[in-house]
């Protein structure tokens, strides 16, 4: 990669107050793909990598991820990257991020991506798929998927999403749902569950403000949607299930069956005014009961 983009990446470290030159990772700086990270710790023991940074993160410069402590959007992104790595599709994938906190993540990935206008990733992804689509199974490749927040996906981008679903575009929509507008300070979003306090509903959302939108359930009613599921990453078990949902969504797209959609519930501790550990308990106790996990439409 060239010097300019390195400087651009170094900005993220500068934002967090760490001079980029001071960063020295104890992890091996250049791990080849498929390398197990084997390294002798003593004369008779050897290290084998079990879990670590996905390769798409490994290949770039080391800078801390520019999200708040406890934000689970990078965890959800890790699930996506793990699936891509497992399927060997990293070179065939095109990511279309929307606007939100997660917009910074694609710039730290060694993955093709096209930045879209606010709320319009399904439109752009449809265009990319129609232009570049190839393969026997109804233009199976490249693998085009969007990464959107809840505000991006169902508030400003509701029209794009619904029309892409109605047209049965062969793309995958990944929605990271942190149940508020995290970037702008935690205002109420269409997916805020009842009883959840935000900066615009300090006493908790009541039916006076309407009811939350359940996106996978809504999309499951469309004939053009082939797969709709909701996962969470608040526990290791839910993380694994979410990974399986994302893999199924990608396989649905590669089989050319139509639009596939996975929603991932993420915590947002600063905007929920909770500690990171309390935010996970809040997801388990108050959000999952209103947003049930599982598959709503499957192949």
């Amino acid at each position: 990669m060239n010097g300019e983009s390195r400087e651009g990446l170094a900005l993220f470290g500068g934002v967090l107050g760490v001079p980029p030159k001071a960063l020295k990772s104890p992890l091996p700086a250049s791990r080849e793909r498929g390398d197990t990270g084997g390294e002798r710790t003593s004369d008779h023991m050897q290290r084998q990598l079990v879990a670590g940074r996905p390769d798409a993160w490994m290949r770039l410069e080391f800078n801390p991820i520019p999200t708040c402590p406890g934000c689970q959007e990078p965890t959800a992104t890790r699930a996506v990257l793990d699936v891509l790595e497992e399927m060997g599709m990293e070179g065939e994938a095109i990511l279309v991020p929307g606007v939100g906190c997660h917009s910074l993540i694609p710039f730290m990935l060694d993955l093709d991506h096209v930045m879209s206008a606010h709320g319009r990733p399904p439109d752009l992804a449809s265009a990319i798929k129609r232009v570049l689509g190839r393969g026997a199974a109804d233009r199976a490749l490249p693998l085009v998927f969007t990464l959107q927040g809840d505000g991006d996906c169902i508030a400003i981008g509701a029209g794009s999403l619904v029309n892409a679903a109605a047209r049965s575009e062969n793309i995958t929509v990944l929605m990271l749902n942190n149940v508020n507008y995290g970037t702008t300070g935690g205002q109420m979003s269409p997916t805020t569950p009842l009883g959840h306090a935000t900066s615009t509903t300090p006493g908790g959302r009541t039916p006076d403000y309407g009811y939350p939108v359940r996106v996978p359930e809504m999309l499951a009613t469309f004939q053009g949607v082939a797969y709709a599921a909701r996962g969470a990453v608040n526990t290791p078990a839910n993380y694994q299930k979410t990974r399986a949902y994302i893999k199924k969504a990608f396989q649905t797209q590669m089989a050319g069956r139509g639009l596939s959609m996975v929603e991932v519930l993420c915590s947002c501790p600063p905007d929920w005014h909770m500690t990171p550990l309390n935010s996970l308990k809040w997801i388990e106790a108050h959000i999952i009961p209103q947003f049930p996990l599982g598959e709503f439409k499957g192949p």
């Binding site: 990270g37 290290r47 084998q48 879990a51 670590g52």
Partner: peptide, 11 residues
Amino acid sequence: PDHAIEAYRLV
């Protein structure tokens, strides 16, 4: 969430 940890098995 910050991808700060790498886990290794010792063999």
